[in-house]
């Protein structure tokens, strides 16, 4: 009896702590979203209000009218194109490394170490190269860089997923009359569908959320939403309405996508160290 009460009190305390912690982590996002629905007057009123007096979408309307919203489209184009290419090339490479041990441990280690290089050190010479190749502020330039930058991640993750496929499945297909290519298409890809999907999502999010590459390599034509957000920063007076509305436009797609793939999140974030 007494232990049951104690148990209940403990549970209540844990629940309270969990709620407080979650509130701390969710509140800033709530605030960001809420600001975007407020009128300008309400945003700049003191004291701040904790929820919008009246929900309105004027901040978004402005973004669409001015054409700023197309930066979300730019983000989408470069992120999805680079994801498709990186997934295709990276998965093939991962297959060779996983199954044929091509290049041995050295290649695998070199590839993962590529992931660790700080972007600023890469983007600087790339920028100079792009100036020469006239690739600055083009879709192709950004797509190429995102593809290359995400390749190590794709290769690393897909290598793990491919190693999870029982070898006998492929061998059975070989004996049954498939060529190596057919084995890839008929056995390997279907077997790691979930892995392909999860890795693609991560690759997409990396490119989508990137700031520094886009900051350096875009000007006006293919500005991505992250760069656009910073355009509204201005010394002492920030354009809060635009900052929040633009951020929300860029963040909602991510929330939706991630909602669908909770299961694969941890494996993707831990570079495959944890299997879900």
């Amino acid at each position: 009896m007494r232990s049951a009460t104690r148990h209940r009190i403990k549970l209540a305390l844990r629940l309270a702590a969990a709620s407080a912690i979650t509130l701390f982590f969710v509140f800033p996002i709530y605030w960001l979203f809420m600001i975007s629905f407020k009128t300008a007057d309400e945003i700049y009123s003191y004291p701040p209000t904790w929820w919008p007096g009246q929900i309105q979408f004027n901040s978004y309307a402005v973004l669409f009218k001015d054409g700023d919203a197309t930066t979300v489209w730019n983000s989408f184009v470069v992120a999805s194109a680079s994801t498709v290419i990186a997934m295709f090339l990276g998965t093939l490479c991962a297959y060779a490394i996983a199954r044929f041990r091509t290049g041995g441990d050295h290649l695998a280690n070199w590839i993962i170490s590529q992931r660790m290089v700080p972007p600023i050190a890469v983007v600087f010479p790339i920028f100079l190269l792009y100036v020469w190749l006239k690739l600055v502020d083009t879709y192709i330039g950004l797509i190429l860089l995102y593809t290359a930058f995400n390749l190590p991640y794709v290769i690393w993750m897909m290598r793990g997923y491919i190693l999870d496929i029982p070898r006998a499945l492929e061998e059975s297909a070989l004996v049954d009359g498939c060529t190596r290519w057919q084995v890839l298409w008929k056995v390997v890809f279907p077997m790691c569908r979930a892995g392909l999907f999860a890795t693609a999502i991560f690759t997409f999010v990396f490119a989508w959320n990137d700031f520094i590459f886009a900051l350096v390599l875009t000007r006006t034509e293919v500005t991505t939403y992250t760069v656009q957000v910073t355009h509204y920063f201005g010394g002492q007076s920030n354009f809060w309405a635009k900052i929040s509305a633009m951020s929300v436009l860029g963040t909602v797609p991510i929330f939706i996508i991630v909602g669908f793939m909770q299961r694969y999140l941890v494996r993707g974030m831990s570079l495959g160290a944890i299997k879900g």
């Binding site: 029982p166 006998a168 499945l169 059975s172 004996v175 056995v187 279907p190 077997m191 569908r193």
Partner: peptide
């Protein structure tokens, strides 16, 4: 060939 772990395609 018949394999030890059946090697059937789950999909």
């Amino acid at each position: 060939m018949v394999f030890q772990n059946y090697a059937l395609y789950p999909y």
